[in-house]
Design a protein around this nucleic acid. Structure first.
Lengths: 230, 230
DNA sequence: GAGTGGTCTAGACCACGGT
DNA sequence: CCGTGGTCTAGACCACTCA
């Protein structure tokens, strides 16, 4: 019983939890108990238990001790790859076409999520992303030119807007929203599917401090799945 | 300049990265440099930098030092709440109805994802989840009775199958797949929407060690969105 | 080979929150 | 109050990888 490393101890304790050594909600041994048992420092046990807590498997409270969560939180780390990477990872050739690029003083249509002032300047862009020259995803994007003035003159021939922004513009926080959309006529035509097809949809808004940077909606071609481990 | 705590240092360094103090891919100061600068132990800096690395903002290599990632990984922690909690959090009353409960020797239709043997016993279940008595999501589930024999006799009147399994059955790993489905006639009827409506779809398979436990597909009623911060 | 991050230790003090 | 987890320190050794 000696892999006195934090990950070794973490997995050992995880197995004991799964095996049911402590029932749901029951108090587990304290850090010092485990430290004695595994013959290591308390710090090492602490790190292992903190990892399990951040996974939602156990709950820890000062003085209250450590307990097995009665109802574990189901959570996963979801990586949202760049479209280019998604396409290339599936062995296809990536390309993109700017479908529509405009600029307007913000009036009506700017997504509420961005919370822009009516007077702000913003830029609207539609891009079609292709895999082996077949439609893969359709992108609608607003960019707040007050946050990213350089975007106005960016050359998006090589780099897509998405990649340009990721490379150039950091952000401090954002929000993602996943949903399903029934393809309207224009969308169906752009993606080469039939009217009313169900499209997996990802919307993302990012902020730099409190200033909206960009809002984007990706409509993925029919049949797309976003897979990830849990 | 002295909150010599790992989170304080982490946020301070994050701000400096966002402010552009080091350009993309450029080498940042080492742990000992930061430790001197913030007047703290190297361990504390290490913890701060490891957190930033796990967020995908920086890259660290032994001997190679720490660098700002040229193309940060977009990732988020996605919490998948229980249906009951989703409904109750939106201020509605939750209920569910078992639509169909069967048991069969596994023959053809068992999802490939579960990787069950043809001879195994499994249980199939359909559940309609309601919010204020209106359809919220439709669930199709397979349960591997060889992994969870108790499920066969479980009383699912109070607790839904999902909650019963979460409470009773731990799992070691799983896979989630998000997609969009066009409602067929039966689905549309169950969810009270029109034929061909776009439904947000979540499929999840879980394993205990190498043994499949359950495979479930949730079809959410039209208009559902899964939101999370990034 | 040498510099960097990865990790462990032993000890200390603190903060929260049950009793 | 006082036990528990949360965190910091100073020092040490190791492992990777770049030059």
């Amino acid at each position: 019983m000696n892999s006195a490393t934090h990950s070794g101890i973490r997995e050992a304790i995880r197995k004991r939890i799964v095996a049911g050594e402590w029932s749901l909600g029951e108090r587990m041994p304290g850090e010092m108990d485990f430290a004695r048992e595994y013959a290591c420092a308390r710090t090492t046990v602490n790190r292992a238990l903190q990892a399990l807590a951040s996974e939602g498997i156990i709950e820890r409270k000062r003085k209250g001790g450590t307990r097995v969560r009665p109802m574990p939180v189901q959570q996963a780390r979801l990586k949202i790859p760049l479209l280019r990477e998604q396409v290339e990872n599936s062995g296809c050739t990536y390309s993109h076409r700017i479908a529509n690029r405009g600029q307007r003083r913000t009036t009506a249509p700017l997504p509420k999520r961005m919370g822009l002032t009516e007077t702000g300047r913003a830029c609207y862009l539609e891009t079609l992303h292709l895999a082996d020259n077949k439609p893969f995803a359709f992108e609608q994007r607003w960019v707040n030119l007050e946050a990213v003035p350089e975007f106005e003159d960016a050359d998006l021939g090589q780099l897509s807007a998405n990649e340009w922004l990721v490379r150039t513009m950091p952000f401090t926080n954002g929000e993602v929203s996943l949903s399903a959309t029934s393809a309207g006529t224009a969308l169906a035509k752009a993606l080469g599917t039939s009217d009313g097809a169900a499209l997996f949809t990802l919307e993302r808004t990012t902020w730099l401090d409190k200033k909206a940077v960009t809002n984007v909606i990706f409509y993925y071609a029919s049949g797309y799945r976003l897979d990830f481990p849990i």
